[in-house]
Amino acid sequence: MPSLATFLSSPALIHAAPALAGAIIGVTGTLLVTITNGLLTRDKFMRERLWDKRQDACNTIVSQLRAAQPYGSRMEDGFAENAYAYYQSDALVAANKAYADRISAAHDAFQANYLILPSAFRRRYERMVKDRGAWWYDSGPEVYLGPVGVNGVAARDLMDIARASLGIAPLFSRQIIRWRPIVRALPSWSSQLTRRIKRRWRQWRKPQDNDLDF
């Protein structure tokens, strides 16, 4: 019976070795290509599915905020006609409930889809909630009309952000959308900076308590 060493050194095996190595390399390469294509296909499917879910979430939030606006307009018109009478009316209660239901639906969608929403979209929505909270402890018509204004501006911004983040808007429009909130915020930033400079100037000019007159 021939030994293993004799078998490995046989001319037939030596001549067949390159073909065998080539076959192994070919099979390995095909396997790697198949695995890579499978992973890429799976990644593409997951990204497309995530895009669909993100679009649905953004659309639900924006559409609910926009659906609330007609009821906000009713409240604005009611207060403009007769603020005192409307403040005491059932019409305000009905309009405010319809308005609040849609705002709540938008908030539910925001919380349920928080992880998949675009980061800029999340930041703008959270700023809207913060700005809206400033009216919670007010009284009179402004407790209703303040949030209406805040939500209306935010709905427009959120729609722009969603279109830019999801690639729905053309490339040039996306750049405009990204810069638009910064341009809108410039007057507010300028006002805040002016107030800080004036406050520091007054503090600098204010005599110190430990200054003594001789």
Rank of each mutant, 00 (worst) to 15 (best):
residue 14 I to N: 02
residue 199 R to K: 14
residue 140 G to K: 05
residue 201 W to E: 10
residue 137 Y to P: 00
residue 122 R to S: 06
residue 161 I to M: 09
residue 102 R to I: 05
residue 161 I to A: 12
residue 65 L to C: 13
residue 179 W to V: 11
residue 45 F to A: 14
residue 122 R to Y: 03
residue 188 S to D: 10
residue 136 W to G: 09
residue 10 S to M: 02
residue 175 Q to I: 12
residue 50 L to C: 03
residue 155 A to F: 12
residue 181 P to E: 12
residue 87 Y to S: 12
residue 82 N to Q: 03
residue 171 L to F: 11
residue 181 P to K: 08
residue 34 T to K: 14
residue 73 S to F: 05
residue 157 D to C: 10
residue 68 A to M: 05
residue 116 I to K: 07
residue 11 P to W: 04
residue 87 Y to V: 00
residue 172 F to P: 03
residue 112 A to W: 04
residue 161 I to E: 12
residue 157 D to N: 07
residue 214 F to S: 05
residue 40 L to K: 12
residue 86 Y to M: 02
residue 115 L to S: 14
residue 159 M to E: 13
residue 72 G to N: 10
residue 63 S to H: 07
residue 141 P to H: 02
residue 53 K to E: 14
residue 59 N to H: 09
residue 206 K to S: 10
residue 108 D to Y: 05
residue 188 S to P: 00
residue 88 Q to L: 07
residue 204 W to Y: 08
residue 52 D to R: 14
residue 42 R to I: 04
residue 157 D to H: 15
residue 72 G to Q: 07
residue 160 D to H: 13
residue 166 L to T: 09
residue 173 S to N: 13
residue 132 R to D: 07
residue 66 R to C: 06
residue 105 A to L: 15
residue 152 G to P: 02
residue 32 L to D: 00
residue 123 R to D: 14
residue 93 V to D: 06
residue 86 Y to Q: 04
residue 165 S to I: 02
residue 131 D to E: 14
residue 106 A to I: 12
residue 193 L to W: 00
residue 67 A to T: 09
residue 150 V to N: 06
residue 41 T to Y: 12
